[in-house]
Amino acid sequence: MAAMLEVENIHSYYGHIHALKNLSLNINEGEIVTLIGGNGAGKSTTLRTISGLMKPRKGSIRLQDEELTRLLPHKIVEKGVVQVPEGRRVFGRLTVVENLEMGAFACRDGKLNRDNLDRVFTLFPRLLERRKQVAGTLSGGEQQMLAMGRALMANPKVLLLDEPSMGLAPVLVDDIFETIEKLHQGGTTILLVEQNARMALQVADRGYVIQTGVVVLSDSAQNLRKNEMVRKAYMGEN
């Protein structure tokens, strides 16, 4: 299998805080890989580093063997690595359609944009119903769908999802994971950051566990589900 995204020995800092220590991971084409870790483990930092919002001091990030490490964030989006930020963050004063149009900013192909819009509306019929509604008035679940739809408008090769289930009611969490599953079946490559390890390991092919910026464990999702440490620390079992 071809490696889609490779992250090799990166070190990221917030000032003096060494947030990621020699972190490596890779994602193959069409895979869902999940990144599990507690609060403050460095999950968001990893995504921010991949999408160029932070520059690693050392290490390298490659998309299909092409170096991303020194590129500016908007170039990385154009290459096809698109992040859905933590906490949804839709453009609250714009309508659903306008949010989606903003997602297509990096992609100047009008026909492709229309196809993508259709694809998003098929994936999220709720958004079609509410396309003229102001995004700030959507429910939490709908906002998460919108945030994901907006990222899909950028035509991603790799989708980076930062805690999509955070703060949602259990029913909606199921919905979101169902959608992730659908995207997976459609062939999208996904890096899924989650605190909800149980759900994440159900949809993922492989997983990495990080603690304080260090990868402590990596294995297939199946094996991680059985792993005692993972069960205790991240799935709330004894």
Binding site: P73, H74, V82, F91, A106, A151
Partner: peptide, 13 residues
């Protein structure tokens, strides 16, 4: 509306 997200949408800030 949101600088960070704008950047994540591929806008050259």
């Amino acid at each position: 509306e949101d600088e960070d997200v704008a950047q994540a949408m591929g806008i050259n800030l």
